[in-house]
Design a protein around this nucleic acid. Structure first.
Length: 187
DNA sequence: TCGCCGATGTTCT
DNA sequence: GAACATCGGCGAT
């Protein structure tokens, strides 16, 4: 089974929980995602196509990397058919491979803090603007679908946004200790 | 453990 | 000139 990135962002965000992502062999299990799309005021692709969000309007199955608050990088997977401006923000991983490399880059030891946040995981995996627009099925990326059919996915409201806060478009691996923040259910 | 706050670049008004 | 899909440090509890 492969992940179908041409599906809507909500479906992809749910399907990615329990999958693994690696950049040059460094990465882990995805435990937290958020869906965004063109009709969503909180999305970078809301409204019209611009230089920054261009990749979101391109073919699915590519990375969209942007700078957040002038300091951090954030990694998204573009999804839905080309032109839809949809994507999934990868918010947290449970580290599994290249842990020493991650500790080196992050300058901390605590496994739980290595990748528990969108900025943190990009730092740990070495993701920068150089990765913007790259295909996810080629080096340096590798995305492995989940194998555990029994895992439980929970959903709640997204984090750090001011618009469309009520939408339950955040997905997490239920019970994971590697989330950026606890899940908050939709009102 | 929690919450406030500054850092800092890019985008949009 | 304001807002922002964040993080880490600091002081208060």
């Amino acid at each position: 089974m492969k992940i179908d990135f041409s599906a809507p962002s909500l479906a992809v965000a749910e399907a990615l929980i329990g999958a693994s992502v690696f950049v040059d062999g460094v990465g882990g299990v995805i435990v937290e995602t958020e869906a965004y799309d063109q009709l969503d005021p909180a999305s970078h692709s809301f409204g019209r196509r611009t230089a920054r969000n261009a990749v979101m309007f391109g073919p699915p199955g590519r990375s969209y990397v942007y700078r957040s608050y002038g300091l951090h990088w954030c990694l998204n997977f573009v999804c839905a058919p080309a032109g839809h401006g949809a994507g999934v923000l990868i918010r947290a991983l449970e580290p599994s491979r290249g842990i020493d490399r991650m500790r080196e880059r992050r300058g901390i030891d605590d496994l739980r803090l290595l990748c528990s946040g969108p900025g943190r995981l990009c730092h740990a995996l070495g993701v920068t603007s150089a990765h913007n627009g790259l295909r996810l099925d080629r080096k340096p990326f590798r995305v492995v679908p989940r194998s555990d059919a029994a895992l439980v996915v929970a959903s709640g409201v997204r984090i750090g946004i001011s618009k469309s806060r009520e939408l339950p478009w955040r997905f997490v691996l239920a019970g994971s200790r590697y989330l950026s923040k606890p899940l908050v259910l939709a009102p």
